[in-house]
Nucleic acid binder design. Structure first.
Lengths: 122, 122
DNA sequence: GCGATCTGGTCTATGTTCGAGACCGATGAC
DNA sequence: GTCATCGGTCTCGAACATAGACCAGATCGC
């Protein structure tokens, strides 16, 4: 399977994981998805909960996630405006394998930090 | 568990998955790891197999992966120089949950592309 | 001897992306 | 009148990525 990660350049069908990671593998996408996991959120709510994301990146990230079908955006014509974001079925299903990765990250965080400390000591 | 992704900003211990994704979630790291999965590779071999990575980014990516303990680097004092890279145990174990994600990506690629086409049609 | 070639990088110039923060328009609270 | 709320967009400088030139040191063909 990993072969497909490597050999996709010559194939018509672009490599799935490269494609997926190009989108969600950035600084913010995963964080936004995780923040949406518990339920519906408004724009400024996401902004506050994530904390260190700029409006611009939040906006851009949400739009990309929406385009890729991970989140749904619902605008209520009110003043002040109310815009709600929620995970789609695709978005939810994505979080399943992601949870595995998070579990791995938590289990191996210490090892990584140890390696990092060892590297800088060297 | 996903809560920890969101609430880590206030915690002393940095959020594991944010930390991990900051490192391997970039354009190239996963690709390098996948290319190293079958076994030992030399620098220029990685360059050729990946194809569209610049030497600079390959160099930088490998150094970071080495610092984090995902790959091991072995220099042979020969001329021309020979430098070999291989996955460490940590690197191998990381590929396990990653495989899940790749599987998901392959299974849902069509859905994502459909969403994307739908979005641009709109 | 003389140049070309191989290797694993680094350096530089250029282009792309990112974050901080100003700004917007309509409305309600004071 | 004035300020805050909301979901963004715009602009600016800074950070980062990319392509490609360049390097040393030995070996090869001639």
């Amino acid at each position: 399977m990993l072969d497909e990660v490597r050999t996709a350049k010559s194939v018509d069908q672009p490599c799935a994981i490269r494609d997926v990671l190009d989108r969600i593998g950035d600084q913010w996408s995963l964080l936004v998805l995780a923040t949406l996991a518990p339920g519906v959120r408004r724009f400024s709510q996401l902004e506050r909960e994530i904390g260190d994301i700029s409006k611009q990146m939040l906006s851009k990230t949400l739009r990309r996630l929406e385009q890729d079908g991970f989140v749904a955006r619902e605008v209520h014509a009110e003043v002040p405006p109310r815009v709600e974001y929620r995970l789609t079925a695709l978005g939810c299903s994505f979080l399943e394998p992601m949870r595995e990765l998070i579990r791995w990250a938590e289990a191996n965080q210490a090892a990584i930090q140890a390696a990092r400390r060892g590297a800088e000591a060297r």
